[in-house]
Design a protein around this nucleic acid. Structure first.
Lengths: 125, 125
DNA sequence: CGTTTTTGATTACAGATGTAATCTTAATTT
DNA sequence: AAATTAAGATTACATCTGTAATCAAAAACG
């Protein structure tokens, strides 16, 4: 699986916001959230290309970048890994921690209920 | 917050299994799960001491190690960070990903239901 | 056309990480 | 007592990460 560092992930977020995108677009988007130097961002983009998380097409001397992986797919993989490592693959303990420390909102609860409902539908139960 | 690398976390897991514990105990426990060399494990323990995730008492020339942070507290912090970074702080999207890819068990569902129930009790609703 | 700017490529460099090996010193064994 | 072993301390070293600076080449500007 493609592994991204935190900084690389932040760059992916900027790209996922809209693609294909030029380096300058990515830089612009990231300026809103970070103080990263343009050079830093370009280094990160290069590393993403090398890791094949991002592909590019040439347009004159500029490159037009596109993510090769979707945000959903990536975050799901990461979540699975995380949950496997910390909670032996089960999601409930994580949610439980949030509950115990009052970090669940009404919205979370509503969504969880819906997830459960759909799950039960699918189980034909 | 104390930051642990993956390898360091694995060592903490071994220590959390039972403490205070001698280095040799930790090594023994980890042999079940990993192929790490004893030297490697001791290096990791030293780094944990340096990071103050672990403290020790001398007993002759051996050290007796104790974690300074609990597993629950640490994994909660990590989870918060993770969820903040990937899902803007909300757990439901993560659970939703698991649901979509059939990674929720009946047990997960039961536990989630219980969490919800308790949450609603607390909200006095 | 020469100069400045801009783009990506290459190089830099310190700290973290994985994964030990070597060193020092004290304990154990013979 | 001499030799071996074992514990932690120190050193090692490649790779990854964060964070750029410098370089080469092409484009835009004057």
């Amino acid at each position: 699986m493609i592994e991204l560092s935190k900084a690389e992930f932040a760059v992916m977020e900027a790209l996922w916001q809209g693609y294909p995108a030029k380096a300058s677009d990515i830089v612009k988007r990231l300026s809103d959230d970070t103080q990263w130097h343009e050079k830093t961002i370009k280094t990160l983009v290069s590393r993403l290309v090398k890791k094949q998380a991002v592909s590019f097409e040439k347009d004159g001397r500029e490159y037009i970048y596109t993510p090769t992986i979707g945000r959903e797919a990536y975050t799901l993989k990461e979540s699975q890994n995380f949950i496997a490592r910390l909670f032996r693959g089960r999601v409930a303990p994580l949610v439980s921690g949030f509950a115990k420390t009052q970090q669940l909102s009404q919205q979370d609860i509503d969504e969880l209920k819906q997830i459960i409902e759909q799950w039960e539908q699918k189980q034909g139960k």
